[in-house]
């Protein structure tokens, strides 16, 4: 049993999502996503933003060397918002 990793068929979608998504699976009351007629997963989609944060952090770093890049400025704003959102949910 030990040694070989689990194949997809052995674990539920929920287990996989809980492992591979940055914040795991989070319940959010007003958002129900259903697959094949079964209410399977309630997902707080903001969890994904946290993963993308890695990218944004890298940009923020390089932004300090790039003067007047409006796109990065606006992204930084978004990141701040996201971070607050995520924190208020955890």
């Amino acid at each position: 049993m030990a040694g070989e990793s689990l194949q997809t068929k052995d674990v539920s979608l929920l287990d996989v999502l809980d492992a591979v998504l940055e914040k795991g699976v989070v319940l959010k009351g007003d958002l129900t996503i259903s697959i094949a007629g079964i209410d399977l997963v309630y997902l707080d989609l903001r969890i994904l933003l946290a993963s993308v944060e890695t990218l944004i952090q890298a940009q923020e770093k390089s932004a300090s060397n790039t003067v007047g890049d409006g796109r990065l400025e606006s992204r930084r704003e978004i990141t701040k918002e996201v971070r607050e959102e995520v924190e208020s949910h955890t």
Partner: peptide, 30 residues
């Protein structure tokens, strides 16, 4: 679902061969 399973399956493939430090779904670099 499709992409998360893909991520997980590829990770298993790597995990079977290497010491793997898995990253989360959606880790993207420019």
């Amino acid at each position: 679902q499709e992409k998360a399973y893909h991520h997980h399956e590829r990770m298993n493939t790597l995990h079977n061969t290497y010491t793997v430090m898995p990253l989360k779904f959606g880790t993207i670099y420019e």
